[in-house]
């Protein structure tokens, strides 16, 4: 799964999926597939099977997780607030299991009422280093020819018609 941040003050959002046999290739593929135009400042890739999701409905039925069971680790918490919205980062919690992480998320972000919660261990994420941001994302900025605004076809058509009228 690919997550990206579109600007320095923007949340990290789920953006799509790439196929890759390992994390490094997933990162490279994510950059090549999703940053062909200048629209990212950071990329994360997470193996799909590391993501634990729960809907509100499933939560209602879920057993309380045993918090003391195991060692705590960091989990990223993402949530999807409406059907159309992308799944976006709401924060981070410490928990002993994915189930516990969801419950910790509900406690920590009590004001949020998403349709789905997504949690995954921070250790499962490959992020681009900030020193790599330039080489990964700057190239797209110079490729202005990919921008439809570079082709003033409406003006060109108007000029053609005006010329036709004069002839």
């Amino acid at each position: 799964m690919v997550f990206q941040q579109e600007g320095p003050d923007q949340p990290v959002v789920h953006n799509g999926t790439v196929h890759a046999p390992d994390a490094e290739l997933a990162m490279l593929n994510a950059r090549d597939v999703f940053v062909r135009r200048p629209e990212a400042v950071a990329l994360w890739v997470v193996p799909a099977d590391a993501i634990f999701t729960q809907t509100q409905e499933e939560l209602a039925k879920a057993e309380p997780a045993d918090q003391a069971a195991s060692e705590l680790s960091d989990y990223y918490v993402f949530a999807k607030f409406s059907q159309q919205a992308q799944c976006r980062q709401v924060g981070q919690v410490q928990a002993g299991s994915p189930q516990a992480a969801v419950q910790a998320a509900i406690a920590t972000f009590a004001d949020k009422q998403p349709l789905w919660w997504w949690v995954f261990p921070a250790s499962a994420v490959l992020k681009n280093e900030s020193s790599e941001a330039e080489p990964m994302f700057s190239a797209a900025r110079y490729k202005t020819y990919k921008d439809q605004a570079e082709y003033p076809v409406v003006t060109m058509m108007r000029a053609l018609r005006d010329k036709g009228r004069l002839d």
Partner: peptide
């Protein structure tokens, strides 16, 4: 300098 930033990414791709 500008070309170099793009080339760093090339190198990452081929080094992978």
């Amino acid at each position: 300098a500008r070309i170099r930033t793009e080339e760093l990414y090339h190198l990452r791709h081929s080094q992978a």
